[in-house]
Design a protein around this nucleic acid. Structure first.
Lengths: 252, 252
DNA sequence: GCCAAGCCTCATGTATACAGGGGGTTCAGG
DNA sequence: CCTGAACCCCCTGTATACATGAGGCTTGGC
């Protein structure tokens, strides 16, 4: 089994028309050009993407695999539509799966090298914070945070779990980095990153101490930050829906 | 969102060449005709399945979606190969996801009708047992058991969770009904069904009493029965590997 | 004898023509 | 006005021809 195929695929494989069209269509869906429920027709899409129907079918098939499109019973595809409740559940799902990865890492044990790797990223995250409580290098934090979550899941030692976490994470609003852009102006948000980082710290500690249950529930609670941010965006500051990637997918 | 698309699709949609070929190829893979790691070529498969390359691509794309095939970096597909550890993790994953569904059902509450439905199936499962401890109508049990698990997940009220449980369940050896055939001759196995049924009972009780944590961990423990059966098949009675669906997929 | 370069072959990428079915619309009859 | 049936159009299913790139093999030179 080759985990992470989805992501690597586009990096490693040569740039073919299908790949270009795949990225283009994905971007269009993610930016709200095709609202949820929109049916996508092969012919018109072929014209839009400047390719023939064959690669269009290929592209739609892959996007269905990613969870952005749904297959219709009698053929054809529609853009998958998400409610607010779906987004909440997708985040919950990510928390549960990352929690499982963390628990397995703790229960089954990780190598010293793996632990060092996690601690090194943790240190890098620490370096992102400035003197003031609300001073933080968001760009660097976002990058290191993404890396932390990737390594954490790798340490589970399970390609099956890894594959499913990656899958759950592919929905943009469920990603660990989803809300790390676009809220920089909110001081309370920047301060909340200290709490997130404390969770990173205790998570590493729990894994090192082989405390499975503790690791699992810290990871779950960690995902709850995303849920809080989602609630804030939806109910407090709807303008954020346009800047946080993927939130335009939410319908009702 | 339309949960359960995968399964219904084949029931509802008209029988097209692609569908016939999809079922045929899936059956061949599941029965071990193409061992894990085997690369599938479009042209030779087209000859084997008596269709042209276009629907072959469609079929392989869908099987990749199901998790039976892996995409290669430079195009093409290989039959996904599973180790014993992968099977253990896939069962663990199913337990975690069903556990989450059970927890959400308990926490968020279910309707009286939903609860009644679950209890009715539970009663049907009770009826499968005879007077003697090891007397059981396996066929009826298997059917009702599958239904129980489906309804349980529906009661989570989350289409996102439902979709992922169905996905995790699609791997044949991870299905709740995986080991309910082929072990009928083992008395200890038949008696273990009493334990499983007791877990069904307490699971319903936990959901009714809105005991989320209890529901979650009973569901996880319930999945452990499958893991025990897997261990038995692999280490105690390797002949079972040929009769339990999907176990031929295991390589090392 | 080994290494490198070029060619050749094979598998996938892509376009397109034709077939067939489903759904929508329209018209006619009640 | 409502209902049902028939027809037509549009969209997907399928086959196939051609393009293209990657990898292996062979050959030649050092």
């Amino acid at each position: 089994m080759s985990p992470g195929k989805g992501a690597d695929l586009e990096e490693t494989s040569r740039t073919t028309h299908t790949m270009r069209a795949l990225m283009e269509l994905r971007k269009k869906i993610l930016s709200g050009d095709y609202p949820g429920g929109t049916r996508l027709f092969e012919v018109s899409l072929a014209e839009t993407l400047q390719i023939s129907r064959t690669p269009v079918r290929e592209v739609m098939s892959r996007l269905a695999e990613e969870g952005l499109l749904d297959r219709l019973a009698n053929g054809g595809f529609v853009v998958r539509s998400f409610t607010y409740a779906d987004a909440v559940d997708a985040i919950e799902l990510r928390g549960v799966l990352e929690g499982t990865a963390a628990r397995l890492a703790a229960e089954r044990g990780v190598s010293q090298a793996g632990l060092d790797q996690l601690r090194e990223i943790q240190a890098r995250l620490d370096d992102c914070f400035g003197e003031a409580a609300d001073e933080v290098d968001l760009e660097a934090y976002s990058e290191a945070n993404a890396k932390f979550h990737v390594v954490l899941v790798e340490l589970s030692g399970s390609t099956v779990i890894q594959r499913e976490v990656e899958r759950a994470t592919r929905l943009p609003f469920a990603s660990p980095s989803a809300f790390l852009s676009g809220r920089a102006h909110v001081a309370a948000f920047r301060q909340s990153l200290h709490i997130a980082q404390e969770q990173h710290r205790t998570l590493v500690q729990a894994i090192a101490g082989r405390e499975g249950a503790r690791a699992e529930f810290i990871a779950r609670e960690h995902a709850r930050i995303a849920r809080k941010n989602l609630e804030y965006a939806v109910f407090e500051d709807p303008e954020l829906m346009l800047t946080v990637p993927g939130l335009v997918l939410l319908n009702s």
